[in-house]
Amino acid sequence: MADQLTEEQIAEFKEAFSLFDKDGDGTITTKELGTVMRSLGQNPTEAELQDMINEVDADGNGTIDFPEFLTMMARKMKDTDSEEEIREAFRVFDKDGNGYISAAELRHVMTNLGEKLTDEEVDEMIREADIDGDGQVNYEEFVQMMTAK
């Protein structure tokens, strides 16, 4: 299944994987998964984290390695993001709930994920998604960005 991913997608997933893999040992533990999910405003229980890991832990060693992570991402993409997942993601970014993602809100979430971005990089990300040019990202623009192939 992971063989249907483009090189660009694999590179993006590698970057995402390293955000989860806090200690850089090449595997994601339940603790690391929990840290990232909490930084995104989720509050999973230990059991939920274990279930999430077990779902993709092909070799049964209790952690997720990069090939397992790729399989999980490929699977998720095949079920292409349901509207509800996209709306949920939008809410994570839209901290003040005004229906727009500002540069400050984007920077806040990315920083929580451990991504240190310059102001230019954040502005560039907003510009790429900002179709109507108002300097922020509304829900429609967010959907376009998330579903762009």
Rank of each mutant, 00 (worst) to 15 (best):
G26I: 15
A58I: 02
D57F: 06
L33V: 07
N138F: 14
K22H: 03
Q136D: 04
T111V: 00
R38E: 14
I86N: 09
G135V: 08
Q4M: 06
R91V: 05
P67A: 11
K95V: 03
A2T: 12
D94F: 02
E68R: 00
M1R: 08
E88R: 02
G34C: 13
V92S: 04
G26P: 04
I53T: 13
Q42W: 04
D79W: 14
A2M: 01
A47F: 02
E48G: 14
A74W: 06
Y139G: 00
I126T: 11
M37H: 07
G133L: 02
E128P: 03
F17R: 00
L5K: 10
E32K: 12
S102I: 06
I131G: 06
E55H: 14
A129D: 00
D79M: 09
R91C: 02
A129H: 05
E55P: 15
T71L: 15
V36C: 07
M73V: 13
N61M: 03
R107T: 00
Q50T: 05
N61C: 06
E55L: 02
V92T: 14
L70G: 10
E128Y: 02
L5F: 00
G41Y: 00
M77T: 12
F66M: 02
L106Q: 03
M145Y: 08
M37E: 01
E128D: 14
I101R: 00
E7R: 09
Y100K: 04
L113V: 05
E115D: 10
Q144W: 05
F93R: 04
G34N: 04
Q9D: 06
V122A: 13
K149N: 12
F13G: 15
E121H: 05
L49S: 10
E140H: 06
M110G: 05
K95P: 01
D123I: 15
A129S: 12
D119G: 12
S102P: 08
E115Q: 07
G133R: 11
R75Y: 12
D59Q: 09
D51L: 02
V92L: 13
G34I: 02
M52Q: 01
E68V: 05
D134E: 14
G99S: 14
R38D: 00
G114N: 14
H108W: 09
E105M: 07
Q42N: 04
G99P: 00
M125K: 01
A11D: 13
E68Q: 04
I28V: 10
E85L: 05
R75K: 12
Q136I: 07
F142L: 06
D94S: 00
G24K: 12
M77I: 12
F142S: 00
A129M: 09
K116L: 14
M1N: 08
V109N: 01
S18A: 12
Q42A: 01
F17H: 08
R38L: 06
A103H: 06
Q42H: 13
M73L: 10
T147C: 07
E15M: 02
T30N: 03
F13I: 13
K76P: 15
T80Y: 03
D96W: 06
T30H: 04
A103Q: 06
D132I: 00
D123W: 08
R38G: 12
A58M: 03
S18E: 04
G41E: 15
D51V: 02
I101V: 13
M72A: 02
A104E: 01
A16F: 06
T35S: 12
D130S: 09
L5E: 08
D130W: 00
E68C: 10
Q50P: 03
L19Y: 06
K14S: 05
T35M: 02
S82H: 14
M77W: 09
D119H: 09
A47N: 05
R127K: 10
E7F: 12
E8G: 12
F20H: 05
K22E: 13
N54V: 04
M72S: 01
T45H: 06
N54S: 10
A58Q: 01
I101L: 12
G34Q: 03
M146Q: 09
G97V: 08
D130G: 10
M77Q: 15
E32T: 04
T111I: 12
G135P: 07
E12P: 04
T118K: 10
D21Q: 08
D123C: 03
A47K: 09
G41T: 07
I131D: 00
S82I: 09
D51S: 10
M125H: 04
D3C: 04
I131S: 08
I28Y: 11
V109I: 10
L70I: 13
A89F: 15
V36H: 00
E124P: 01
K149C: 08
E48D: 14
V92D: 04
T111Y: 01
F17M: 00
A89D: 00
E46A: 10
E88L: 02
S18Q: 10
K78H: 02
M125W: 00
D59V: 09
Y100H: 13
D65C: 15
R87G: 05
E83V: 13
I64D: 06
L33A: 14
Y139L: 00
E15Q: 09
G41D: 13
E48H: 03
A89E: 01
F13K: 00
K116D: 00
T30E: 06
D96L: 02
F13D: 15
G34P: 05
D23H: 13
E88Y: 14
M77G: 10
P67R: 09
E12D: 13
E124T: 15
I10E: 09
N43A: 06
M1L: 10
E84H: 02
R87H: 11
F17P: 00
L113P: 04
F142R: 05
G24E: 08
M72C: 08
D21E: 14
S39I: 12
E8V: 12
K116V: 09
T118C: 00
G34Y: 05
M146G: 14
Y100T: 02
F17I: 11
T27E: 05
A2L: 09
D96Y: 04
G114P: 05
D123P: 09
F142Y: 11
D57N: 13
N98W: 07
A47Y: 03
F69C: 02
V122L: 09
F13A: 06
G24D: 12
I10P: 15
F90A: 05
S39F: 00
K95H: 14
Q9I: 08
S18H: 03
L19T: 05
P67Q: 10
D119T: 15
I64T: 13
K95F: 04
Q50K: 13
E128H: 10
V143N: 03
K149M: 07
L70E: 00
A2P: 08
A16R: 04
F17N: 02
E121N: 01
T29A: 12
M145H: 08
E105Y: 06
L5M: 11
P44M: 01
E12Q: 13
G133A: 10
L106F: 08
L113K: 03
E12M: 02
M146L: 09
D23N: 14
E32S: 15
D96S: 04
R87N: 09
M125S: 04
D57P: 00
T29F: 07
N43S: 14
L70V: 12
L113N: 02
G97E: 13
A47L: 07
T27K: 04
K31T: 11
L117G: 07
Q50C: 06
D51F: 15
A148N: 09
T80I: 15
Q136E: 12
M72P: 07
E15T: 03
V137W: 13
L106N: 06
E12C: 15
G133M: 10
G133F: 04
R107C: 11
F90P: 02
F20I: 11
H108I: 13
I126V: 12
E120G: 13
Q4N: 15
S82N: 14
A2N: 15
E68S: 08
Q42K: 05
E120L: 10
Q144E: 15
K31M: 09
I126E: 02
T71W: 06
E46I: 14
D94M: 02
K14A: 04
L40Q: 14
E121A: 03
E140W: 07
D96F: 07
V143T: 00
D57C: 06
E68M: 07
D3E: 12
Q42E: 05
E140C: 06
K78V: 00
F93Y: 11
A16W: 11
G135I: 03
